[in-house]
């Protein structure tokens, strides 16, 4: 069964860039995109233990007929058979249910009904909820179409980071690209991180794709991020802890995404490795 990437199409030039990013990701990964052209400004995603209502701004509804031709045009150019998603079930007449059985999903940084917030450089609460609840990783694209040539994984040693590393290795294997790991060394020394990887039985796998492992031993994490190549797909894990902890300790995900504008692939706490 071919893996699927779920993409919500916005019929604007910005939406075109996002779809191009998704198409690039799909072509690299051998994944098929499923494109949803929204029919109303809201939809529901039912996860295992959460239901997320996603509200879109009205620009998603621009000329649905033209949107179909736009999508088909872009997909045909990439020689992918266009597959449009039509919702089967409705919670209320204007509230379709979107299944959550995809392998990937592409999101803008923020999905909201207030367009002004888009591109403000923080991850919106809806996208956060989706990341927290989803079994699939979420692709957060940079605003402009940017093909990536290598993979950068942020690895902090936690269980989620291991999941993200697994995901990174899988992408590196499929695409044949090199993978670099970035670790901000805290109190531990670098060998500790390597030991974690060995513990999880990832040593062999990692060796075959790893180009380098960068340890940031000093300096602020945000400043060190300049080291990450501009054309890398950044893979990271998101953590399951709540808002309070994020405010107190600061969220790694937030720091990374507000500093670098690469394409991000985020694996949430419920992410399960497929295949």
């Amino acid at each position: 069964m071919a893996q699927k990437l779920f993409h919500i199409f916005r019929n604007t030039p910005l939406g075109r860039e996002t779809l191009l990013q998704s198409i690039y990701f799909c072509r690299q990964m051998g994944v098929l995109p499923t494109v949803y052209i929204p029919e109303s400004t809201k939809f529901l995603m039912y996860f295992e233990n959460d239901v997320v209502q996603v509200d879109l701004d009205p620009s998603y509804l621009n000329d649905p007929e033209i949107a179909v031709t736009h999508v088909e045009q872009l997909l045909n150019e990439a020689q992918i058979k266009p597959e449009l998603f039509t919702p089967k079930n409705y919670t209320a007449s204007t509230l379709p249910d979107i299944p959550t059985s995809f392998e990937f999903m592409c999101c803008p940084r923020s999905i909201s009904d207030l367009s002004s917030k888009i591109g403000l450089g923080y991850i919106g609460p809806r996208v956060r909820r989706i990341i927290q609840a989803a079994r699939f990783p979420v692709l957060i694209t940079s605003p402009v179409y940017k093909p990536w040539q290598s993979i950068a994984v942020f690895f902090g040693g936690s269980a989620n980071a291991v999941n993200a590393l697994r995901l990174g290795i899988r992408i590196a294997k499929v695409t044949g690209m090199r993978l670099a790991i970035y670790t901000q060394v805290g109190k531990n020394n670098p060998s500790k991180y390597q030991a974690i990887v060995q513990d999880k039985g990832l040593g062999k796998l990692l060796e075959s794709v790893l180009s380098q492992w960068n340890f940031f031993e000093k300096g602020r994490f945000e400043d060190n991020l300049y080291e990450v190549p501009h054309d890398a797909l950044v893979v990271l894990g998101a953590y399951g802890h709540g808002i309070i902890r994020d405010i107190v300790f600061g969220s790694m995900m937030e720091k990374i995404q507000s500093t670098i504008s690469n394409n991000l692939l985020i694996a949430g706490p419920k992410y399960t490795v497929i295949g």
Binding site: T91, L95, D113
Partner: peptide, 22 residues
């Protein structure tokens, strides 16, 4: 951002299809 209506069908729908997720 919710539809009009009294909501009871929505509850029954969620109960039968999505394990009561509201």
């Amino acid at each position: 951002n919710e539809g009009a209506g009294h909501g009871v069908p929505e509850v029954i729908y969620a109960v039968s299809r999505y394990g009561g997720l509201l």
